[in-house]
């Protein structure tokens, strides 16, 4: 019913930034296909049932617009794999300037 192929898994892995191996493509496509097949059972539910996204019994939870202390910069950068000039250093970005 679900038919998750190797190509599908390769596409999902790309979207999810996972450099999966060839072997993984085999294993994952088999497993994910079986899992998606099972969970597709929810498809029987009528469309007119309203969705529930969360079960929080409250609305309009707001924070006052008052400043709170930020982290010291050393603490902010402490876990960084690489840092330079007070900034997080990352590999070159491919893509558009935002």
């Amino acid at each position: 019913m679900s038919d998750i192929t190797r190509d599908d898994v390769a596409h999902l892995a790309r979207l999810a930034r996972l450099a999966v191996t060839d072997d993984e493509l085999d294993t994952f496509s088999r497993q994910i296909d079986a899992i998606v097949d099972t969970v597709s059972a929810v498809g029987d539910i009528p469309d007119d049932v309203p969705p529930t996204a969360q079960v929080v019994p409250q609305t309009n939870v707001l924070r006052p617009d008052a400043t709170e202390p930020s982290l010291p910069r050393e603490a902010a950068l402490a876990g960084a794999p690489s840092a330079e000039e007070g900034r997080f250093r990352v590999p070159r970005i491919l893509g558009e300037e935002l």
């Binding site: 998750i4 450099a19 969970v39």
Partner: peptide, 29 residues
């Protein structure tokens, strides 16, 4: 390497099979 490549290699190496499986199932869903 680009950020995209480093992200993908890191996540591939850093996550175990169950986590990867669930991330991909969620991405699909």
């Amino acid at each position: 390497r680009s950020t995209d490549d480093v992200m993908s290699l890191t996540r591939e190496a850093g996550f175990g099979a169950e986590v990867k499986r669930r991330i991909m199932i969620g991405t699909h869903a």
